[in-house]
């Protein structure tokens, strides 16, 4: 059994996976762990192993899926990816084409969860404006967001393209990203107290939300399917939901 520490990034995984493949280490002989204190680390074993010179080529589609899966919060993703990589390079070249293998099914679900979270981040980030008295023309827009997966770096480009001419920051527990209209900067995660608590314009947004709602057609489950409750705490309009439902019930629609 070989003990391997979970890689810290996709790049690190690539390096580890390449070395493991070159040494022909089968997935079932690896014990993955998130502990760095185990004394049988891969690096120490490394010298004892004789690496082969073989090089491996895998399909572009694997890299795409792997990069997406790498954003998943569950660290067992690395074991699954290595299993797939092993199978792809050991006689099951077309594994990804059918997508029916159990590791592939699991990884595709993980990738799907990451993509969904990315889409929800585009939708549910809410900026609040901070005015800078020394530069009133250039306010700072700051958002607090709690993504399900590790997607901040993956999504930064979207916000850069959309809000290129705004000074903005997105703060999350995992990573923070800042844009100064020229460059993106990353910083470690923070907590909610660092984000602004209010924005005067929210009154307009809440007014809009209340009035665009049609009380004659109550479909709460449909709403929750697309806007799961886990996101509600950072959506200012979500606080209105109970009273809107109540209004609709009072009018006799249920």
């Amino acid at each position: 059994m070989r003990q391997i520490t979970y890689p810290s990034s996709f790049t690190a995984f690539r390096k580890t996976a390449r070395e493991l493949l070159q040494q022909q280490v089968a997935p079932e002989t690896i014990l993955w762990s998130d502990s760095t204190t185990l004394n049988l680390s891969f690096e120490q074993n490394n010298a004892a192993q004789r690496a082969t010179e073989a090089s491996y080529f895998v399909a572009r589609t694997f890299l795409d899926v792997a990069q997406t899966v790498a954003c998943h919060r569950d660290p067992t993703k690395w074991e699954r990816l290595y299993c797939i990589l092993w199978k792809l390079t050991h006689g099951e070249k077309y594994l990804l084409h059918t997508g029916l293998d159990k590791d592939v099914v699991q990884c595709k679900r993980m990738a799907q969860a990451v993509r969904r979270d990315c889409h929800k981040m585009k939708a549910f980030v809410r900026f609040r404006q901070i005015n800078d008295p020394t530069d009133p023309e250039n306010p700072h827009f700051v958002a607090w967001f709690e993504p399900q997966h590790l997607i901040v770096k993956r999504m930064a480009g979207f916000f850069k393209q959309r809000f290129a001419n705004m000074h903005w920051s997105i703060l999350t527990p995992d990573d923070c990203v800042h844009w100064n209209q020229k460059q993106l900067f990353y910083a470690p995660g923070t907590d909610k107290s660092m984000a602004p608590r209010e924005d005067d314009y929210e009154t307009y947004w809440l007014t809009y939300y209340q009035n665009i709602f049609n009380p004659a057609r109550l479909k709460t489950k449909a709403m929750c399917a697309e806007m799961p409750k886990k996101y509600w705490k950072n959506l200012p309009e979500a606080a209105l939901i109970p009273q809107l439902i109540e209004k609709s019930m009072r009018m006799g629609f249920k």
Binding site: F163, Y209, N214, M223, I245
Partner: peptide, 21 residues
């Protein structure tokens, strides 16, 4: 550009009201 905005991908639904829309 000088302003805000991007478009052209999949649509984005920024919120949902209790009418499911």
């Amino acid at each position: 550009g000088k302003g805000v905005g991007s478009a052209g991908g999949a649509g984005i639904c920024h919120s949902y009201a209790p009418d499911g829309r």
